[in-house]
Design a protein around this nucleic acid. Structure first.
Lengths: 242, 242
DNA sequence: TCGCCAAACTGGTCTATACCAGACGAGTGA
DNA sequence: TCACTCGTCTGGTATAGACCAGTTTGGCGA
C-alpha cells in the first residue's frame, strides 16, 4: 500500500491499465461514444494478455466510464441522464432538454390478468384485468432501458388502443384527465438478466438499476405500475423534497 | 436460443453454474451469510476451472445474491435494507426495526474549508469553514457503507465536539432544534474505488450506490451535505410522494 | 492453559492459448 | 447498381496451469 508510487509498483497490473485508460478518457483523448482499441491491441500495448485487459475494462465498465456493444467493441460512456422518478414526466422531453436524442419502441401490448405479484404491488385483486405495455427506450441510438407498464383498464377505458410511442404521461393527462398522485417508488442496483438483457442487447449480468413506480390518481384509485430496467451507467437519479 | 432446455444445452457453462447456485440459494439450501464452498471445490463439482467458476460467482455477485469477504470466501447476501433517503432518519432505528443489528464507527472528524466542489453543492463560498465527518456503518457485522458528512459550523456551533457514533439526526434535532427541510438528493450506481473500497474492506471495483443528500433547515439555511457510498447489494431505496 | 507459529486454505492476480459467434466491410457476381 | 458471400475483425467463452497475499486453524512449546 505504501510503496504505491505514481500508479506504478504495488498496484495490480489490471488497475494500472485501468488508470491509463481512465486518464485518457478524463483528458478528453477519448470522447463519449468513441470506440476504444480492441482488447487484443490494448493487451499488446500494455504488455499483457487479453484476460488481464478484460479485467481492466470490466473495472471501467463497473464505474460507468465505458460500455460495450455486443461483439463490436468498447465505447466511452456519455454523461448520465438526469432523471427524477417522482415527477410526472415525459422521457422524450427530459432527454431532449439535456441535449440528447430520444427514441421509444413499443415491444408489446397485452390485455391480461393481475398476478399474485402484481396484486401485492397494486392493491388490485388477483385475476382483475390489466393492460401490460412493454417498451424500449433509447438515447442517441443506444438502448438504455426497458420498461413494463401495467395500466388499470377500469380507470383508463380503451387505453390499449392508443399509440404508446409517445408520452404516456401526456396521454393520461389529456385523454383521461388523470393527475398522478401518491407515488410509491422503489429502486435498487442489480444485474440485468434475461428478458431485459436480451431486449437491451447486452450480456446477462450487465449492471443495471431496477426502478418501480406505483401511481394513483387524486382519488387514490390505482392508475399504473411501472417497472423500469436501466443500464447502470446511463442515469443519475435526482429528487427534491419540500 | 431455442434449444436451451432445462438449463442445459445452449447456455454458456458459467451461466449454468450460476443457475445451479442460484437455485440452491432460492430453495434455502444456502441461507443468508453462510459461506459457499471454495472456488476450487465448486470448479471441481461442476467439472470446470476456477476462471469459469469465478465468472458464475461474479454474475451472482452482480445480481446481489452473494458477496465476498476478502480472501475468506463467498457468502449468501441477506435481504436488502429498506432505506428512504428523503426522510429524516436514524440509521440505527431503521436497521433495528428491520430485525438487524446496526453499528457505527467514526473514522474522522476534521474542521476544514469549503472546496470548489463543495461550494457548488452547498451554496456556501470557497474557503468558508466546514466540519467534515467520516463514518463507517455496519449491519450484522458487515460494513455496508461509508459516508462523508459536511456540517455547517455556522448553523451548528460546537458541532465538532459531539459524539458522532449515535444518530446525527437526533443530535441536530435535540441540541440545535434543526428540522431539516428542502433536501436535494442525487444517486447513481457506480463502482467503489479506493478510499471507499478500502474503508469497506472490499476490492476496488466492487459495485456500489453513490447517494448524496443536501439538507437545509426551515429557514433555507444550509445545514449538512451527506455523501454515502453503499455496497450495491445491501439496500433498496423506497420513496413515497404526496 | 495460553500464546505463538506454521501449515493449509482462501480468494486475487496473471500467463498463454484456443475456439466460437456475431458484426462488418470488401469484393464478387448477377 | 445491388444483393450476397466470405474473410477478417470484434468480443465471448473456456482450458490449464502458476504464484501471491491474506485468513484460519491446529498443534506445539512455554
Amino acid at each position: 500500500m505504501q510503496e504505491r508510487v505514481n500508479g506504478e509498483g504495488a498496484a495490480p497490473l489490471y488497475l494500472r491499465v485501468r488508470d491509463q485508460l481512465a486518464n485518457q478518457i478524463e483528458r478528453g483523448l477519448l470522447s463519449p461514444n468513441t470506440r476504444l482499441p480492441s482488447e487484443r491491441i490494448l493487451a499488446e500495448e500494455h504488455g499483457t494478455t487479453r484476460v488481464t485487459t478484460r479485467l481492466a475494462l470490466a473495472q471501467l465498465e463497473a464505474e460507468g466510464r465505458i460500455y460495450r456493444s455486443n461483439r463490436r467493441g468498447w465505447f466511452v460512456s456519455p454523461p448520465r441522464l438526469v432523471y427524477n422518478p417522482t415527477q410526472d414526466y415525459s422521457f422524450s422531453d427530459n432527454v431532449t432538454s439535456q441535449g440528447r436524442t430520444p427514441a421509444t419502441e413499443t415491444l408489446e401490448v397485452t390485455a391480461t390478468e393481475i398476478s399474485a405479484w402484481l396484486a401485492a404491488n397494486t392493491g388490485l385483486a388477483i385475476g382483475d384485468p390489466i393492460v401490460r405495455l412493454r417498451r424500449r427506450r433509447q438515447i442517441d441510438g443506444r438502448s438504455v432501458l426497458v420498461e413494463n407498464i401495467y395500466l388499470n383498464p377500469t380507470r383508463l377505458p380503451g387505453i390499449e388502443s392508443y399509440d404508446f410511442n409517445c408520452s404516456l404521461w401526456k396521454l393520461l393527462k389529456e385523454r383521461y384527465g388523470v393527475e398522478l398522485r401518491g407515488k410509491r417508488i422503489e429502486m435498487f442496483p442489480t444485474a440485468l438478466v434475461d428478458p431485459q438483457a436480451e431486449a437491451l442487447g447486452v450480456n446477462a449480468g450487465t449492471a443495471g438499476l431496477y426502478v418501480t413506480r406505483c401511481s394513483h390518481d387524486a382519488d387514490g384509485c390505482f392508475v399504473e405500475f411501472d417497472e423500469e430496467f436501466w443500464l447502470h451507467d446511463t442515469l443519475s437519479i435526482q429528487v427534491e423534497v419540500n
